[in-house]
């Protein structure tokens, strides 16, 4: 059901337990997964290979979600982004950085898969 050579999903979170849990779920569903522990590491990943979707934690050391989004905008890079956050203001933060959606923590597998499917399922442009 996925693109033959799908772009990877980049998971950015400073909590390794979350990164590994999300990565496990997505891999089980057959997605390509890439990971980063903060915004700066994520920028390097994006420069190496443009991901199909970024799952972005907001509060992270070194470079946070806002900084990451700003850096992408300054570089003129457009990547679909969904923020993952434990904060109450998830919707507000998503609109602040112009993200395409948000996943309030804690989320369930199905919620994660629904959001991901909406953004990386094959579209005419991607197919």
């Amino acid at each position: 059901m996925h693109d033959p050579q799908p772009l990877p999903i980049l998971i950015v979170d400073d909590d390794p337990a979350i990164v590994s849990a999300v990565a496990d779920v997505l891999r089980m569903e057959g997605y390509e997964v890439d990971t980063a522990g903060n915004g700066a590491a994520a920028l390097t990943r994006v420069e190496d290979a443009l991901p199909g979707l970024v799952l972005l934690d907001m509060r992270m050391p070194v470079l946070d979600g806002w900084g990451f989004a700003r850096a992408l905008r300054e570089r003129g890079v457009q990547v679909p982004t969904v923020i993952m956050t434990a904060a109450h203001d998830a919707a507000v933060w998503a609109s602040e950085i112009g993200a395409d959606g948000y996943l309030p923590k804690p989320f369930q597998i199905q919620e994660l898969l629904d959001v991901v499917a909406r953004h990386v399922s094959p579209t005419p442009e991607q197919a």
Partner: peptide, 11 residues
């Protein structure tokens, strides 16, 4: 509270 709960729920 929410961060470990995310991991717990997913696992």
């Amino acid at each position: 509270l929410r961060t470990p709960l995310t991991t717990l729920l997913l696992h």
